[in-house]
Design a protein around this nucleic acid. Sequence first.
DNA 1: GTTTTCATGTAACCCGTTACATGATTCA
DNA 2: TGAATCATGTAACGGGTTACATGAAAAC
Lengths: 238, 238
Amino acid sequence: MLELAILGLLHESPMHGYELRKRLLALLGAIRAAFSYGSLYPTLKRMRQRGLIVEETPGGGVAEKGATVKGAPEKPLLTGRRARKVYRLTPEGKEHFAQLMAGADSAHAADEALFGVHFAFFSRTDPATRLRILEARRRRVEERRERIREALARTAERLDAYGLELQRHGLETAEREVRWLNELIASEEGRSPRQHTDFGDPLAEPGRPDAAPIQGTPDPAPSAGDPNKQGKGGMRDG
Amino acid sequence: MLELAILGLLHESPMHGYELRKRLLALLGAIRAAFSYGSLYPTLKRMRQRGLIVEETPGGGVAEKGATVKGAPEKPLLTGRRARKVYRLTPEGKEHFAQLMAGADSAHAADEALFGVHFAFFSRTDPATRLRILEARRRRVEERRERIREALARTAERLDAYGLELQRHGLETAEREVRWLNELIASEEGRSPRQHTDFGDPLAEPGRPDAAPIQGTPDPAPSAGDPNKQGKGGMRDG
DNA sequence: GTTTTCATGTAACCCGTTACATGATTCA
DNA sequence: TGAATCATGTAACGGGTTACATGAAAAC
């Protein structure tokens, strides 16, 4: 999950660990997925060893699968701050990200946080995958909703007031999420069910007059070079 | 967490592992806490070793801290089914349960599932503890809500449509939970904020005409250093 | 000049899961 | 007779967390 999140963030632009963590918090904090340094740094290390990312110390060279650059060990670096290791996505990393997104099955749909991470990076994946993930998630939540309904119908009398209230709240939560997913799916399919929702249009970019509500990813994962390079000092946002 | 749930369930009546798991699913499934046998049985074992529960094979004797009964190894048992080990709460177990409930601090309040387990067994704890847990949880959710609001205000332009939607939904979720907790707290304090909610009264048992909305646990948890002792059949709440 | 923030990392632990192994009993 | 359900358990793994260790630069 953390790996997916890292790949997703680096997809946007290279970053060092500390910043990565802040961005993670800002993006996924809403969904209770924060990640501590204790898991972040070892994960980055593993990913580097697998060739999903490369680590470049801004003043020095690039360290790939092998060890860190031997040459100048503790040079004072660009910004003057402590040695920061900036990580950049490799083509393999992009490919792996695409696989993780596309390979999300119904087992993944059960995990609230993991779904959230998938969703957060929807703009980096193709519409078909988005739809599959949303529908898998909806199926799961509907199943849970039904199970609660049955439990309420069958065993309500065995529950005390708090147990009952827990079921009621859980049911309401599930129903609410299904509604949300319905809207997302409808929007994804190009037909907005209602215009007056808070959500409704925002997913559609203003410049698109046609049916397609979103066309996020400008890069189709070309697996060769990346068309997505950017100079420092400005990220072009969607 | 699993331990707390087991103690909570056994508080009600003795049970064997398999049934325990089904009840767990029925009670906590709404909140995504299910627990597999792979964690259930080892946990029961540990709890037995610590003296929190006793295991009694319905046809045979009682196995406490030591080993299982030596005597008759594989007797055909009461119901005719396979050997079932029925677990019963010891006084130590009750005490431990009370401590786990009372000792729930703000760290615990951050864990969604753990809060759910606490809540599920509210009727087995005293009103003061219930209130503390609810308020700790509310504080946590409010904090998260504020963090999302700030993130939305400060960094909204860096987010794409999906990132934004994730924040929006997370914010709404947090707001909804705070409202829910507010109602629970109000009800707990004896003053219902509104009568027309779905929830409103249900927590109050129909036979109570007075202010106190709930009076759960009929059994006391008779500890030494506990100022909160109570005779069976009613807890003085207030 | 001390505290805060930036920055990277390791070691130990925690709490669960999946997959596997076993076997009796009931039901179709 | 074969599948489903009841019933208990172990081993290996997974994916995170907390606590610890270190140190430089910025802010106050």
